[in-house]
């Protein structure tokens, strides 16, 4: 299992040919209280860097981009009734969707844990 990060603060936790996508703890803290999450349809094809979901805080709506290309195979429907999970447990219960990767080599361009932590320091 590997976790990779985008510069837009999405994570993807890869197990086999599937990756679980969510937003990082830094992202949720920047957004503030999440009040609504719009999830894609299962089966939707997403392209790396394309819009995969929408997360809305009290203040504003933000896009969640697909870290890699592939097909949406599962979404976290529990967020519809409890969007606050994105704030409380972004890496766990606050996940957004699962993607079956069409090109696992796309992961190579994403950041690993240490690299992401360094990146966070560089932008704060």
């Amino acid at each position: 299992m590997t976790v990779r990060y985008t510069k837009d603060h999405e994570y993807i936790r890869v197990e086999g040919d599937t990756g679980t996508v969510g937003i990082t703890d830094y992202a949720q803290s920047q957004l503030g209280d999440v009040v609504y999450v719009e999830l894609p349809a299962i089966g939707k094809a997403v392209a790396k860097g394309g819009e995969a979901a929408v997360v809305e805080s009290v203040k504003a709506a933000s896009e969640v981009y697909a870290p890699v290309s592939g097909e949406v195979v599962e979404v976290n429907s529990a967020l519809e009734g409890a969007p606050g999970a994105v704030n409380e447990d972004p890496a766990g219960n606050g996940w957004f969707l699962k993607i079956r990767l069409s090109d696992p080599s796309e992961l190579d361009a994403l950041m690993g844990e240490d690299e992401y932590q360094t990146y966070l320091k560089s932008i704060s």
């Binding site: 503030g32 209280d33 009040v35 805080s57 009290v58 203040k59």
Partner: peptide, 12 residues
């Protein structure tokens, strides 16, 4: 200040 650490929902 747009919000304090407790967040907008709690403040509201």
């Amino acid at each position: 200040p747009v919000q304090y650490p407790t967040g907008i929902l709690t403040e509201h």
